[in-house]
Amino acid sequence: MLRIIATRVVLGILTLLAVSILIFAATEILPGDVASAVLGQGATPETLRVFRKELGLDRPAHVRYAEWFTGAIQGNFGKALTNKRDILTSITPRLKNTLFLAGYAALIAVPLSVALGILAAINEGKLADRLANIISLATISVPEFFIAYLLILFFAVKLRYFPSLSTVFADMPLSKKLHVTALPAVTLTMLVAAHMLRMTRSSVLSIMSQPYIEMAFLKGLSRTRVVLTHALPNAAAPIITVIALNLAYLIVGVVVIEVVFVYPGIGQFMVDGVSKRDLPVVQACGLIFAGAFITLNTVADVLSILVNPRLRHPV
């Protein structure tokens, strides 16, 4: 079992390496190079040469990749092109903000959606189940900014319970911070909760078609009891995987939400970097997002191996 997990972890690390090469290579396929892309039309051969030297573009690609990657894993992402600031010092507080928001949303979303998913599975086909189904389908098919603006319109503008912009400072007290970030957290919750609810429901229901569940019913147990004590322990493995996968999804969802609420997180930082075409910033953010995504996916795989004995002995 340890060997399977180790293989999976090594595979995750290899993927991360391949992804880092991909992120780096993306800058190489550019016709011309970063220097000419940044300087644009007004570049003279002289300024191009100086700028290339400044960026270190006069050296071969594999040397620059090795330098960039070893720097990146030590937390040295270089300097931003636009304001010459150290990227790490700009990213660290933003990364903390993003993790805070994602964690806040996860704390609401995970218990809520798992509980509702189980409830929907217990009441399969009844009103509660169909209601959960319709609401979750609706939240999946509308764009995330629509939900965000609706929430702002009702809770920030009409009812004035929460601010419409989530401005946070480093030395803000926690209670204030929780209040200010409530709307973005709820929006994110709705986004991932819909997926989680549907997946939880279907994994509980797929267990429900097993013979031992039928046996439990034939013994005369109530539906609630069958679901909670017979089906749920066996559905735990897929549910844990679902949670980890959706936390990965949360990372992507956070980008748009941060822009809507003008929340100073890493997603907004990346979008800013893209519109200013600040490549080192975009690469650094991309690597962090991809790293988090791959880590969570690997954790999901490892957890499902740990929880489900059948996966420990692959044929």
């Binding site: 550019l30 990965a248 990372i251 979008v271």
Partner: peptide, 16 residues
């Protein structure tokens, strides 16, 4: 293994 949005953002930052 990279989120699509992040991937697209990187490509768009290169090519405009």
């Amino acid at each position: 293994s990279i989120p699509l949005l992040v991937f697209a953002l990187m490509i768009l930052s290169m090519f405009g």
